[in-house]
Nucleic acid binder design. Structure first.
Length: 155
DNA sequence: GCCAACGTTGGC
DNA sequence: GCCAACGTTGGC
């Protein structure tokens, strides 16, 4: 059982969008970074905890709690010629990029990035390190507990 | 819109 | 294999 923070631009897919999706589940595709891909391919397993993070928006932060709902499978978007996520170097026989399904569980009271930066228990988070821009990053069990507890506090 | 930081590409 | 140039990310 591992824990992850996954970034999404809410203009594209917000946590509420996932809650509203059939089965409260969406495919997490379009990752085009090897480190993030390797986490999905090699380490993610169904049931892993996910913090759903909103990036590139007015107030970045953690919007809700989710879980990994599948193991990694080839990202279909890499084969869609002309599409935003097309990769000419990928082939169906040797797919380069993978996706996983993510299932939304619980919307917390929003935890802004600015507040995360004030929490000593979170100072080692990959997300908070200078220059960090990984779209998927591992978090520790202790960080997970701290954030989930905070998300569950009434606003 | 700016810009720092990072990842990738490609010439050599 | 080096490294400069370029593209992208993402907070502010």
């Amino acid at each position: 059982m591992a824990y992850w923070l996954m970034k999404s631009e809410p203009d594209e897919i917000s946590f509420d969008d996932v809650l509203a999706a059939p089965g409260q589940t969406v495919a997490w595709f379009g990752v085009r970074n090897y480190q993030a891909r390797n986490f999905m391919r090699d380490q993610m397993a169904p049931g892993d905890g996910v913090l759903f993070y909103h990036s590139s928006c007015a107030e970045p932060g953690v919007a809700g709690i989710a879980e990994v709902a599948s193991s990694a499978y080839p990202d279909a978007a890499q084969f869609e010629q002309g599409g935003k996520y097309f990769d000419p170097k990928s082939t169906p026989a040797a797919p380069r990029w993978v996706a996983v399904d993510v299932h939304a569980l619980e919307r917390g009271s929003y935890l802004p990035l600015a507040e995360m930066r004030t929490m000593p228990a979170l100072e080692d988070m990959v997300l908070l390190q200078k220059g960090s821009r990984l779209s998927i990053s591992p978090i520790t069990a202790a960080q997970w507990r701290t954030i989930v507890k905070r998300l569950r506090q009434p606003a």
